[in-house]
Design a protein around this nucleic acid. Structure first.
Lengths: 206, 206
DNA sequence: CGGTAAAACTGAACGGGTTCAATTTTTATA
DNA sequence: TATAAAAATTGAACCCGTTCAGTTTTACCG
């Protein structure tokens, strides 16, 4: 592959990605037709399919950019010196939820999750799942960090607890995007309530 | 509405439901075309859409029959005298999982969940969500039952813990149906591991 | 350069879920 | 029973994601 060809390819890839994210945000995922995306990117429909396996893969590209940011924000938090399990969890989970609607609408999240479940063999679905696992691992890391510093009981399995808590966070997020009425504060409050018993029980008594 | 019309309607409804479930089980959800379902039921495509809003609603009708059975099995279990939190949870969750593939394939579950997330405003999606909530409530009821009998600590919020545990059960089930390799025993083992810390911590010390 | 193989591009055609205007069947009324 | 209104049915047409055979562009080599 020589310079010209590679450059054209990179350029088209960027134009298609930009056109898609613009349209997804403007008119929503369903209403954004491949024909429109292709036209806005200045390519044909066929070429679109040369760059992305299908419409869902296109969306996943947007989603993964979003989640990467959330992961980075979470890493920053784990480095800090937190001294309360409930508060630490609320803060990490709060970051997840606060970030979630920055680039993606509820409809886009619904579509992304829907596709990741319905077509698990597509590359971007696998990527989505991988991102989920990294988020899950981050919650586990938080528990381990707190345990190392004596905030969490020594006899608690941090991975098990972290996965449990994260899966609840994730499931509640699904409920959130399914319900157009629900707002982020309500979501946070519910999850904090659900986490409270675990936070209390795993805490090391002074 | 007079007798003849009502009877015809009920009859057609049954024929369509039967044709759809038969085809979904035989060739899978995606491969079963509306045209085929309609033909097998002896009606036209247009009539199919008079009875079901869309193909997804059709599948949800099958799913809800399945979940109703699981709920009944769970109720039976809660009535029994169990004396160990971990074992009680494993048994209830085991019933859920064991039942799950009786009528529905992984593909059908994936599609059902995918639709319930992707099109939350459809009637059957709402029904699916309602079924989920009943399952969640059943786990809460189990915790409460154990608490009443002194197996679970008095200071534990049974609803919060039950919801947390159920949401994990549900999320793990999603992972399960996404992964064609994973079997039910593996799923049960993972969830048991995740539940272990909670089961230990909420247990009343003798 | 000229020729050719490979890569990229194209858009018309295809497939299957969904819609809807026209038709048929049933019910209600006189 | 005749007639009109209402309900139910029909299937051809529509929409949109996806495919693929044919065309154009680029890269490589003598």
């Amino acid at each position: 592959m020589s310079g010209l060809r590679a450059q054209k390819k990179a350029d088209k890839n960027r134009r298609i990605l930009e056109a898609a994210t613009t349209l997804f945000r403007k008119v929503g995922y369903d209403a954004a037709r491949i024909e429109d995306i292709a036209e806005m990117a200045g390519v044909s429909v066929g070429t679109f399919y040369n760059y992305y396996k299908n419409k869902g893969d296109m969306l996943m590209a947007t989603v993964s950019m979003e989640v990467e940011e959330v992961l980075a924000a979470g890493d920053e938090l784990i480095g800090r010196e937190l001294d309360n399990v409930g508060a630490a969890l609320s803060e990490l989970i709060g970051k997840y939820y606060d970030h979630s609607l920055t680039y993606l609408s509820k409809e886009m999240w619904r579509t992304a999750m829907s596709l990741s479940i319905g077509q698990p063999e597509t590359p971007f679905s696998k990527r989505y799942t991988a991102l989920d696992h990294r988020l899950s691992k981050q919650v586990c890391d938080l528990f381990r960090s707190l345990q190392t510093r004596g905030i969490v009981r020594k006899d608690v399995d941090c991975d098990a607890t972290g996965e449990l808590v994260f899966n609840n966070v994730n499931m509640m997020f699904i409920e959130f995007v399914k319900d157009e009425e629900m707002d982020i504060d309500g979501l946070k409050a519910e999850v904090a309530r659900q986490n409270a018993p675990v936070a209390m029980l795993v805490s090391q008594v002074a």
